[in-house]
């Protein structure tokens, strides 16, 4: 048992590699149970009437793509299936660029036209100050142009859309977030002020800190990590990278659990503890 204490990091890395490769090459097809946090997000969006505007905060960067990209894919499948109209915006510099690359092919798949059925306002300087401005004047907050620098007035989706509020037709906010600025800023500046329900799509490690807001009803729900993406993919009937990574993630969790137990046994039985 004492030798367990001397186990180097390399065998552990090797084990992690083997588990990941085996899980991808020989999928076990472990069942994915839909959690209540994800289901409430799905139900909230599903209940919206077609044509409703949904604000999508693209508040993440490339470092979070492995977990958040599959969530964005699943969410936009749902939005387009229901005939909802997403308006993408980002306080994070690269967020709208990342989301643009993901959404364009999905929109094409559903025959959705840019500027008519969805739009990307892009990133605008000013983070929370600019978000605050959006709640009173979108045209000014966006500098009058979209992600590509083209005038917003040219797009039919923006007709009658003056501010990020209910009067302009916004019925839900989804914040795809890595950290700050993110969901907390949306909650304080927009959701709590304007009464628009909001949901969060976030990283696995952010699930515990968002949970109190879900429990209090301040967030409608949350899609957490790759697992959350898998659940949403199943709900919308589009299994993708989230679902295919579930086996590997589950086996990795078991491996980590096993290693923690072994490590503790080694520690407790060590005479030098």
């Amino acid at each position: 048992m004492q030798r367990l204490q001397a186990l180097g990091r390399r065998p552990i890395y090797a084990l992690v590699f083997v588990v990941g490769i085996v899980a991808f090459l020989f999928p076990l097809g472990l069942p994915v149970k839909i959690g209540s946090d994800v289901r409430t997000v799905y139900n909230a969006l599903d209940a919206l009437p077609a044509g409703s505007l949904v604000w999508v905060g693209a508040e993440y960067d490339v470092s979070s793509k492995p977990e958040l990209d599959p969530q964005v894919v699943a969410i936009f499948h749902h939005l387009f299936q229901k005939g909802l109209k997403p308006v993408v915006y980002g306080m994070w510099l690269r967020g709208p660029t990342i989301v643009q690359d993901i959404v364009a092919p999905i929109a094409e798949q559903y025959g959705k036209q840019y500027g008519v059925d969805w739009i990307n306002l892009g990133h605008k300087p000013g983070t929370t100050t600019n978000l605050r401005l959006m709640t009173s004047n979108i045209m000014e907050g966006a500098g009058g142009v979209d992600h590509f620098g083209k005038p917003l007035a040219d797009y039919s989706i923006m007709r009658g859309v003056n501010a990020l509020d209910k009067a302009s037709g916004f019925r839900h906010i989804i914040v795809v977030e890595t950290g700050s600025p993110g969901s907390r800023e949306y909650l304080g500046i927009v959701s709590a002020e304007k009464g628009i329900p909001m949901s969060v799509a976030t990283l696995t490690m952010s699930i515990p800190e968002n949970k109190p807001y879900v429990e209090s009803g301040q967030f409608t729900g949350q899609i957490g990590g790759l697992r959350g993406a898998a659940e949403y993919e199943i709900l919308v009937g589009k299994p993708g990278r989230g679902a295919s990574g579930t086996d590997a993630q589950s086996l990795a969790a078991l491996l980590v659990f096993f290693l923690v137990v072994i490590g503790n046994i080694g520690y407790l039985t060590s005479p030098r503890k």
């Binding site: 490769i21 492995p66 977990e67 696995t204 952010s206 590997a248 993630q249 990795a252």
Partner: peptide, 14 residues
Amino acid sequence: NTVLFRYNLFLGRL
């Protein structure tokens, strides 16, 4: 959750 998140980043590359 943080450990699992790091592993998910690795899984994405794998």
